[in-house]
Structure formats: C-alpha cells, structure tokens
C-alpha cells in the first residue's frame, strides 16, 4: 500500500527521482480488522504504534510504565506474530503489517486469559497486557515450552507487584489447555 510521493525533496535542490519518498497511506490489520490511515492527516511520522492503537482505535491495553524508554515491556503488542514494543514502533513503519493486542487475544477466547485468572497471575494489572501478549507469541511458535523458555520469553517485561512466578504457572496451564489437557 506504499504510494511513493514526490514532495519536499525539491526544497533541497536535488532531483527527486533517485531519492527516498515519504509514505502517504498506511494500511494495517489490527486484531483481524483492516484499517487505513493517511499520513499527515490521521497519523504523523512521529506517531507511535501505541498512539495509533490508543488514540485512533481505542485500544488502550498497551501501557507506558517506562514512559517510552523501551525498558519495561508494558506496551508489548504482536507485530506480524512477534512481540515488539509499540512505544518504539512508528505507525508509518507498519504498512501492510498485522497487529495483535490483548483485546484481540481476549476476544478470541485464548486460554491464557483464564489461566492468568486461575493462577492469580496479576495484581495491579498494569503490566499484564504486555505479559499476555509476550506469552501468546511464545505459545504460537512453541506450544510446548519448558520453564526456561517461558522465562526467556517473558524476560522483556517488568512487573513491579511481583507476579512473575504466578505468571509462569499461568503460561504452563495455558499450554496444557492448548494441548487439550
């Protein structure tokens, strides 16, 4: 959906045909629904994926514990199936990609939701969305993870209340449920 544009480069007095061009329209799928945004109108180059999800789509599960420092994982979403930090991802850089948030995971009835509940795997809940997304990405690619693999997959997320051990239990339970256990 990348439509090459021809603006701005004239200002610098260089012929524009062999220069990089700004994106004009961004199309992406969020929790299975398609959306199109006009760059410069709906979103700006400095709009993050997190801003887009929250301000344009009303999905406020990605949080901002570290305030955009990239060091807490509370804004984690899946981008083309991989957990990434939505606070350090540009919306203009997501053209043609597919995004999944915890709202989508819950809507789909993924067993992680019940497992987090059954195991008291959350306290204040501020980091929980990020953990569930990271766990979902793990179970998608590895339905039978070892404890070490679970720990590694969740090592980019900080929980200040201290639900780590319970979260490990929850991910194990979800994995068992996915196997039909």
């Amino acid at each position: 959906m990348n439509i090459p544009g021809e603006k701005k480069t004239d200002d610098i007095g260089v012929e524009s045909k062999n220069l990089a061009k700004p994106p004009q329209i961004i199309g992406l799928t969020v929790n299975g629904r398609q959306h199109i945004f006009k760059v410069g109108v709906d979103i700006q180059p400095n709009t993050t994926l997190r801003d887009l999800l929250k301000e344009r789509l009303g999905l406020y599960s990605p949080k901002e514990m570290c305030q955009g420092d990239g060091s807490c994982g509370s804004c984690t979403v899946m981008l083309d199936g991989k957990p990434v930090l939505s606070c350090l991802t540009l919306a203009v850089d997501c053209d043609g990609k597919s995004v999944e948030t915890v709202e989508g995971i819950a809507e789909a009835g993924h067993p992680l939701i019940d497992a987090f509940r059954n195991n008291y795997a959350y306290q204040c809940g501020y980091c929980t969305s990020g953990f569930i997304v990271a766990a979902k990405a793990l179970l998608d690619r590895n339905p039978n993870p070892t404890d070490e693999e679970i720990v590694k997959a969740l090592s980019g997320n900080i929980c200040r209340c201290g639900a780590y051990a319970a979260i490990i239990s929850a991910v194990r339970e979800a994995a068992e449920r996915l196997k039909g256990g």
Binding site: P4, N18, A20, P45, N46, E64, G68, L90, V92
Partner: peptide, 20 residues
C-alpha cells in the same frame, strides 16, 4: 509519555536512494 520530536520519514527503495 513524552512525544517523539518531529521529523520527516522517507522510505528508501534502493541503497542508492538511501545514500543519495
């Protein structure tokens, strides 16, 4: 959270475009 400061974003289609 602070806003990321403003910039222009350009997509390069080739290495030449990028370095030019």
């Amino acid at each position: 959270m602070r806003t990321i400061r403003k910039f222009e974003f350009l997509n390069a289609r080739t290495i030449d475009e990028a370095v030019n």
